[in-house]
Design a protein around this nucleic acid. Structure first.
Lengths: 198, 198
DNA sequence: GTCTATAGCTGGATAGAC
DNA sequence: GTCTATCCAGCTATAGAC
């Protein structure tokens, strides 16, 4: 059974609108108008707006990592791949005109008791953390490190999350570029080397 | 001219609901019901819902830094004060049952062309950065540092932002505690010291 | 300044024809 | 499966009495 073209069209339009306008600010009416389909067709494929949201988050996660793999495919060195993760997020923010992280954004709109939405978003975040972890384990880190490997994973993840958030607040890519520089320093510690310190 | 009690009541109720349910999910009807005032009174004090939002963000910023000052008042050492910033955010997240950052949350709900809201939120973020900067300049950092002072400011800010976001996604304070540990390491670099590195 | 009544619209969802 | 017509609840905002 192949994917219905109608279903695909609905999900594509809804995904764009959910991200650009927010989930709560996007009405069924606008979705069916822009997808140019009937109200009944939407409810045939998605029993409720909530089901449409679930499909949106799941498909977005798949697309996100597919895009990432493509973005990194020409880079072999694990350290450069790790740093390019920041470029990837910068590029996505630039392209979306600084709409912020799709997943974090949804969470901000959901009531706290919506366990399903939180679970879906955590899934994507865990995948990012694992991505970082895998790359980090391929890197031959100098000894001694400022941060233990586990703390380094967390630090890189948190800096990346904070930078994406900050970029969308400031509508500027600077925070993500800075985050990349910080990551580079943290990954390239030569304890006794000369560094500007003030 | 003293602050109207009605106005205060409206703003208090709206602030709570905007944060707990989101701005878009909170209706005027609920605000007037819970504040136990008439519809006309609300529109007398706040010409539109949007004006209520502006007042909410501005008052929240004032309260935020007042709470912070109070939280830190018994701590004198600048490094401990800086680290306690993480405790402050952890405490706030715990108290709100991990509702996330009030300011970032609003941004996630706003259309990108709402310049006013973005400006108000940036104002609060800049104040945090300046708070970090001021404290950092009072700390006698060891030489050489892994990160320059400017990068250290950014790193601490981004880690704090990322951790607050992550805490609200995971509904757990762990990310902020980890962020504090990372901050502590970054502030206390002794380049040649023994550290667990794997 | 505070109140009630209501306008004018849009929200999500359902029913039933084809 | 796709369509149109429609329900009802909710929204923001205004008008006008007191």
């Amino acid at each position: 059974m192949r994917e219905s073209a109608t279903r695909t069209k609905i999900l594509d339009v809804a995904s764009r609108l959910f991200y650009e306008q927010g989930y709560n600010s996007t009405g069924i009416n606008q979705i069916i108008a822009e997808a140019d389909i009937a109200r009944g067709s939407l409810y045939n494929h998605f029993p409720s707006k909530r089901d449409l949201l679930t499909a949106y988050i799941q498909q977005s996660e798949d697309l996100w990592f597919a895009e990432l793999d493509k973005f990194l495919e020409s880079i072999n060195d694990p350290k450069l791949r790790l740093l390019a993760l920041f470029d990837f997020r910068a590029e996505k923010q630039l392209r979306s005109n600084f709409g912020g992280c799709q997943f974090t954004k949804i969470i901000a709109e959901m009531p706290k008791d919506d366990l399903n939405a939180f679970e879906l978003v955590r899934h994507q975040k865990e995948r990012i953390k694992n991505y970082i972890k895998d790359l980090l384990q391929q890197i031959d880190l100098k000894q001694p490190q400022v941060l233990s490997t586990n703390m380094l994973i967390d630090a890189l993840f948190l800096i990346m999350e904070g930078a994406t958030s900050s970029a969308s607040v400031y509508k500027h890519v600077e925070a993500i570029r800075t985050a990349k520089q910080i990551a580079n320093e943290l990954l390239d510690i030569e304890p006794v080397s000369q560094r500007s310190s003030l």
